[in-house]
């Protein structure tokens, strides 16, 4: 049951990314190009998503536990430190270089473009490197 729910959630999430335009690097870079010919449409993606989570998370987290698990697995991290800021800074630069963040890159694999495969493999390598650097 948990597996089916996870699969369905992934499908809805991925469909949402494709519907929204987030899997189109030209649209994403156009959205980030606020000093050029700015295309602000994609602001409605995070805007729409956050409207839903802001309201619904509040009620969901009032429950004692989730429907199919023993407890809520929340990060619990609150520190606004150098790791957070440098990580977000580096991530944003990479996002601006090619136009994909992690979710859309994975969803776009279905378009069978070899450059997307390069992006995703490089992303996994980058994660492993950061993990190594962080634990050293």
């Amino acid at each position: 049951m948990r597996g089916i729910v996870a699969l369905l959630c992934g499908m809805v999430f991925g469909a949402g990314l494709a519907v929204s335009g987030m899997t189109d690097t030209a649209k994403v870079l156009g959205f980030l190009d606020i000093f050029g010919t700015w295309v602000p449409d994609l602001a409605f993606v995070m805007g729409g998503a956050v409207c839903v989570t802001l309201v619904a998370f509040h009620f969901v987290l009032k429950r004692k536990q989730p429907v199919l698990s023993a407890g809520f697995a929340l990060s619990g991290k609150t520190a606004i430190d150098g790791r957070l800021l440098s990580g977000a800074t580096i991530f944003g630069i990479g996002w601006g270089v090619y136009g994909y963040c992690p979710g859309p890159a994975l969803s776009a694999l279905v378009y069978l473009d070899s450059k997307t495969v390069i992006f995703v493999v490089a992303m996994l390598v980058g994660m492993a490197l950061a993990n190594k650097a962080g634990s050293a």
């Binding site: 729910v5 729409g48 998370f57 992690p102």
Partner: peptide, 25 residues
């Protein structure tokens, strides 16, 4: 973009409601 965003939000809420997990890709 708005419809896509609402779907992403819906999926995130469902994952938290059913599995107790955050949809951080």
């Amino acid at each position: 973009p708005l419809i896509g965003g609402l779907l992403i939000g819906l999926s995130s809420v469902a994952l938290l409601y059913f599995l107790g997990r955050m949809a951080g890709i």
